[in-house]
Design a binder for these strands. Structure first.
Lengths: 185, 185
DNA sequence: CTTGTCTATGCAACGAGTTGCATAGCAGGA
DNA sequence: TCCTGCTATGCAACTCGTTGCATAGACAAG
């Protein structure tokens, strides 16, 4: 399991409540590790029980109180241990690829709109990443101006950008193929 | 759930036993949808109960008997229905990206060997894809020689190749970044 | 002739992830 | 005033996925 480790990383980058974590998992971190608020609350509870994280009640104005979590020493140790363990190269779940192969047994042209929808979603995500990169990682800084944490966040973001660009190119290839097949009938 | 649909596609491409499916899921189809033999046997049983697939006992020489499954009409219908439903753009689980961001709170240099290991795994997979492409999709055929099913299998394979190439480039970027951070200390 | 390997199928237990629902404070608009 | 929407947390039930184990026939190597 790595959700707990993803939470540890996120809390080390910035302490926060379950709700705030859930929103982070809907964006930045969540683009590399998705999770719902249910999972997050459950795991936070367990981690607090194990002493990995500590909670602090925070009264807020104009909204309900929240419990702000931050990482305790045993949590840092657990993260360090995990970082030194090897992991398996990820197992993919690419539903669209299954659909494309399945289209051979149905009407390939019917998939075109679906693929276009996905293309749009990936274009949006790319735009979102690029905006984040402009915001956080451009400017006149010479190499060496960023600290290690920022450098690492940037290289992960560059991975996301590369992934979306590759996916857009591939979806164009898929669309061209579907159109070609449709025309040949 | 889409495992059942992935199995339907695989059985339509070629009927086979649970064991054979499990091996296909270790390769071709499994690069886009991973599954263990346990999952496959369980789902096959349910699908047979629902009448989506039919089984045929096949006696073999020099090995145990097997149950060869093939898709029945209700299974084709179920697949067609699924193909016409929209799906969500996939939720990713990129453990290595989490580790890279986590490395900011540990020793970034310690990640280098792990990243190199992943790089090797992706290089191997790329070589495997390229060998498959040479085997199945080269030759003097003019466009239009392949049927729709082969075209679609090829475009999915091209997606896998593009993914691995992109990943290799990114991992090189990650390695360069980790070396730079290590040198700056 | 025993041991290991490959084909082939399966059970049982557990852990992870999803879905639906519930509660509650506060703000703003109809 | 009531309804909607956002912040904030959580339970319960269910499905899906993983892991460990078990069986059994056939063959090849030692």
């Amino acid at each position: 399991m790595a959700l707990e480790h993803a939470i540890l990383v996120s809390l080390l980058e910035k302490p926060g409540s379950g709700y705030e974590l859930a929103r982070r998992f809907d964006r930045s971190i969540g683009y590399f590790w998705a999770a719902t608020h249910q999972q997050i609350y459950r795991v936070l509870k367990r981690m607090e029980g194990d002493g990995w994280i500590g909670a602090r009640e925070v009264a807020q104005q104009a909204r309900p109180d929240k419990k702000e979590y931050s990482v305790a020493a045993p949590g840092r140790d657990a993260l360090a241990r995990w970082l030194h363990e090897p992991i398996e190269p990820e197992s993919v779940r690419h539903e669209l690829a299954v659909k494309i192969r399945g289209a051979a047994f149905d009407d390939p042209a019917a998939l075109i709109r679906e693929v276009e929808r996905h293309r749009q979603a990936h274009a949006d995500r790319l735009a979102h990443y690029l905006a984040g990169e402009r915001r956080d990682f451009t400017g006149p800084e010479a190499p060496g101006t960023l600290d290690a944490g920022q450098e690492l966040q940037h290289v992960v973001l560059r991975g996301g950008i590369a992934y979306e660009r590759m996916t857009l190119d591939w979806l164009d290839d898929v669309l061209a193929t579907l159109h070609r097949i449709a025309a040949e009938r």
